[in-house]
Lab assay of single mutants.
Amino acid sequence: KLPPGWEKRMFANGTVYYFNHITNASQFERPSG
């Protein structure tokens, strides 16, 4: 399970990334916590 605010998303080319809808942060590494 991801930390609060984070969700797993995917680009059109299939690349997975993680987006935080609270802070609008995005990253390729899975957030810890």
Rank of each mutant, 00 (worst) to 15 (best):
S26I: 15
P3S: 05
N24K: 13
P3R: 03
T15W: 06
E7K: 04
H21K: 12
K1T: 13
F19N: 01
L2H: 01
T15H: 08
P4F: 12
M10H: 11
H21S: 14
F11K: 14
G14S: 03
F28V: 11
F11V: 06
N24D: 07
F28M: 12
G33E: 14
P31N: 01
I22P: 01
Q27R: 05
A12G: 10
S32N: 13
G5Y: 08
F28L: 14
W6F: 02
Y17T: 02
T23Q: 04
G33M: 14
G33K: 10
I22A: 08
S32L: 13
P3I: 03
T23H: 03
M10Q: 12
R30K: 10
S26F: 13
T15V: 14
S32Q: 13
K8R: 12
G33N: 13
N20I: 02
Q27D: 02
T15G: 08
Q27S: 10
Y17L: 06
W6Y: 01
Y17P: 01
A25W: 08
S26P: 03
R9K: 10
K8L: 13
P31Q: 01
S26Q: 13
L2M: 08
L2E: 09
H21E: 10
K1N: 13
F28Q: 09
Y18S: 00
G5E: 08
Y17A: 03
W6S: 00
W6N: 00
G5W: 06
K1S: 14
F19T: 04
N20P: 00
H21D: 07
M10F: 13
F19H: 08
S32I: 14
N20D: 05
Q27H: 04
F19A: 02
F28A: 10
Y18N: 00
F11E: 12
P4V: 10
P4H: 12
R30I: 13
P31W: 01
A12V: 09
E7Y: 04
G33R: 09
M10I: 13
P3G: 07
K1L: 13
S26V: 15
I22E: 11
G5A: 06
M10N: 07
F19Y: 15
P4Y: 12
P31E: 01
R30H: 14
H21F: 14
I22H: 10
H21P: 10
R9Q: 05
G14T: 02
Y17M: 06
P31F: 01
A12K: 11
S32F: 12
F19V: 07
A25F: 08
A12I: 08
I22S: 08
P4R: 09
R30W: 13
E29P: 06
R30S: 09
K1R: 12
P4S: 09
F11W: 10
S26R: 12
A12R: 09
P4G: 08
T15K: 12
F11Y: 14
F11N: 15
E29V: 07
M10D: 05
T15A: 09
Q27M: 08
S32V: 14
E29W: 08
R9D: 01
I22K: 07
P3M: 05
G14M: 04
N20H: 05
G14N: 05
P3W: 06
Y18F: 08
K1I: 14
E29A: 06
N20G: 01
E7M: 06
R9F: 06
Y18R: 00
Y18H: 00
K1G: 14
R9H: 08
N24Y: 06
P31A: 01
E7G: 04
V16Y: 11
G14E: 04
A12S: 11
Y17K: 05
F19M: 03
N20S: 05
A12M: 09
T23S: 08
Y17I: 09
F28S: 10
V16M: 07
I22D: 10
G33Y: 14
G14V: 02
S32W: 11
A25I: 13
P4I: 10
M10T: 13
W6L: 00
A25H: 13
A12L: 08
G14R: 01
V16N: 05
T23G: 02
R9E: 01
A25D: 10
P4A: 11
I22Q: 09
T15N: 09
H21V: 15
P31T: 01
I22L: 12
R9A: 05
A25Q: 15
H21N: 13
P3K: 03
K1Y: 12
A25N: 10
N13P: 04
E29R: 04
Y17D: 07
L2K: 06
N20L: 02
R30E: 12
T15Q: 13
P31H: 01
P4Q: 10
G5Q: 06
N24P: 01
G14F: 03
G33D: 14
A12H: 10
I22G: 06
L2Y: 05
N13F: 02
W6G: 00
K8G: 04
N13T: 05
K8V: 14
K1P: 15
R30N: 11
T15D: 14
K1V: 14
Y17G: 05
H21A: 12
Y17R: 02
R9P: 00
P3H: 03
A25T: 15
N24E: 10
F28E: 08
W6A: 00
P31S: 01
E7H: 08
Y18L: 00
N13L: 04
Y17S: 03
K1W: 13
K8I: 14
G14L: 04
P4N: 10
T15M: 12
R9G: 04
P31V: 01
G14I: 03
S32M: 14
E29G: 06
S26E: 10
N13Q: 03
F28R: 10
E7V: 11
G33L: 14
G5L: 02
E29L: 07
Q27K: 03
N13I: 02
S26Y: 11
W6V: 01
V16L: 07
N24M: 11
M10Y: 14
R9L: 10
S26L: 15
N24R: 11
E7R: 04
Y17W: 08
S26A: 12
F11G: 13
K1M: 14
N24Q: 14
P3C: 07
T23Y: 05
K1E: 15
L2I: 06
E29M: 06
E29Q: 09
P31D: 01
V16F: 11
E29Y: 07
S32K: 10
E7D: 05
W6Q: 00
M10K: 11
Q27P: 00
Y17F: 09
G5H: 11
P3Q: 05
N24I: 04
W6I: 00
K8F: 07
Y18K: 00
K8W: 06
N24L: 12
S32D: 13
V16W: 10
A25E: 15
P31M: 01
N13W: 05
Y18G: 00
R9S: 03
V16R: 03
W6K: 00
P4E: 11
P3D: 06
R9I: 08
I22Y: 11
H21R: 10
P31G: 01
